[in-house]
Computed example of a mutant assay.
Amino acid sequence: MRTHGTVRTADGTEVAYQLDGTGPPLLLLAGQANNHHWWDAVRADLLAYQTLSLDWRGTGDSEDGPADFTTRTLAADVVALLDQLGIETLDVYGTSMGGRVAQWLAVDHPDRVRRLVLGCTTPGGPRAVERSQDVRRRLAVADPAAVREAVAELMYTPGWRATHPGPYATLGDPAISPVSARRHLRASARHDANDVLARIAAPTLVLHGTDDEFAPVVNARLIADGIPDATLRLFEGARHAYFEECRPEASPVVLEFLAAG
């Protein structure tokens, strides 16, 4: 049974969270400008765990907060949540911006992360490979419907969309304010954990689609090379939402990795 609640962060922002199921705790961290529904398609695969998710600042049932934030701020929000729930250690699965937040969680709070899964994300900083100018132009048009279509194309392959027409829960929180959307974009763009990846002590699995244009696949290799003994698994032909489109392959890989510890 799913339960809901809120936590007050260090600057007083109220952040909503969701707990689902029983078993060892597994934290699920969603992508930029998205809420916990990002995980709707795969949460049922993780029933062996008590899954914990949250709505990022400015999404879902969470407050906007008073100012700009960083991926490190969001990691601190997660720690405030873990403290409130009395969770000392758990497994962490972070994707896209959630993967950036998970990097800081593992760096700054190594005692809280048992095993770490980083999906479709980047280390940030000067070595990271950014999305192309073509992708940026497709996302910068004024028509919201055109932007959502562009995001859908970046998330899923045409063949998969033909048999899975949606709606999709990964295209951004439709109720996010323009101010919060810009804050999310800045937080992701300014992320830079490249020089501290070697400090991540948790066993780490890195997952990525080979045809990801949102976060080019070379970033997965940078992360895997930067974290001691990390394991890299690529999904051929997949785009940014590999975890949903390649669910029959990806979810078992995650479960096997988490069970190995």
Results as ranks from 00 to 15, higher is better:
residue 1 M to N: 14
residue 7 V to E: 11
residue 8 R to V: 03
residue 8 R to Q: 05
residue 8 R to C: 06
residue 10 A to Q: 08
residue 11 D to M: 13
residue 12 G to E: 02
residue 14 E to H: 10
residue 14 E to K: 04
residue 15 V to E: 07
residue 20 D to Y: 13
residue 21 G to Y: 01
residue 22 T to R: 11
residue 22 T to H: 12
residue 23 G to C: 05
residue 25 P to D: 07
residue 26 L to Y: 06
residue 30 A to R: 01
residue 33 A to V: 04
residue 37 H to A: 13
residue 41 A to I: 01
residue 49 Y to W: 15
residue 50 Q to E: 12
residue 51 T to I: 02
residue 52 L to A: 03
residue 53 S to N: 13
residue 54 L to V: 04
residue 55 D to K: 09
residue 55 D to Y: 08
residue 58 G to Y: 00
residue 59 T to M: 11
residue 60 G to N: 08
residue 60 G to E: 03
residue 61 D to N: 14
residue 62 S to Y: 04
residue 66 P to D: 15
residue 69 F to I: 09
residue 70 T to K: 04
residue 70 T to M: 07
residue 72 R to P: 03
residue 77 D to W: 05
residue 77 D to T: 01
residue 79 V to L: 14
residue 79 V to T: 12
residue 79 V to D: 09
residue 81 L to F: 13
residue 83 D to I: 03
residue 83 D to E: 13
residue 85 L to P: 15
residue 86 G to F: 03
residue 88 E to D: 15
residue 89 T to Q: 15
residue 90 L to M: 08
residue 91 D to A: 09
residue 91 D to V: 06
residue 97 M to P: 01
residue 99 G to S: 07
residue 99 G to Q: 03
residue 99 G to Y: 01
residue 100 R to N: 13
residue 101 V to I: 14
residue 102 A to E: 05
residue 102 A to C: 11
residue 104 W to Y: 12
residue 110 P to K: 08
residue 110 P to S: 10
residue 113 V to W: 06
residue 113 V to A: 01
residue 118 L to R: 00
residue 119 G to D: 13
residue 120 C to E: 13
residue 123 P to G: 14
residue 124 G to E: 02
residue 125 G to C: 07
residue 127 R to D: 15
residue 127 R to P: 07
residue 129 V to W: 05
residue 131 R to S: 08
residue 133 Q to N: 11
residue 136 R to N: 14
residue 143 D to N: 07
residue 146 A to C: 01
residue 154 L to K: 01
residue 156 Y to S: 03
residue 158 P to A: 03
residue 162 A to M: 04
residue 164 H to I: 06
residue 165 P to V: 11
residue 165 P to E: 09
residue 166 G to V: 02
residue 168 Y to R: 05
residue 176 I to P: 08
residue 177 S to F: 13
residue 177 S to V: 07
residue 181 A to R: 00
residue 182 R to S: 15
residue 184 H to E: 13
residue 189 A to T: 03
residue 190 R to S: 15
residue 192 D to W: 00
residue 195 D to H: 00
residue 196 V to C: 11
residue 197 L to G: 12
residue 199 R to A: 07
residue 201 A to W: 00
residue 206 V to N: 00
residue 208 H to N: 12
residue 209 G to I: 01
residue 210 T to D: 14
residue 211 D to E: 14
residue 214 F to R: 04
residue 214 F to E: 02
residue 215 A to Q: 13
residue 217 V to C: 10
residue 219 N to G: 02
residue 219 N to Q: 07
residue 219 N to I: 08
residue 220 A to F: 00
residue 222 L to I: 06
residue 229 D to P: 00
residue 232 L to V: 09
residue 234 L to W: 02
residue 236 E to A: 07
residue 237 G to A: 02
residue 239 R to H: 12
residue 242 Y to Q: 02
residue 247 R to L: 07
residue 251 S to L: 04
residue 256 E to F: 10
residue 257 F to E: 06
residue 259 A to Y: 07
residue 259 A to H: 11
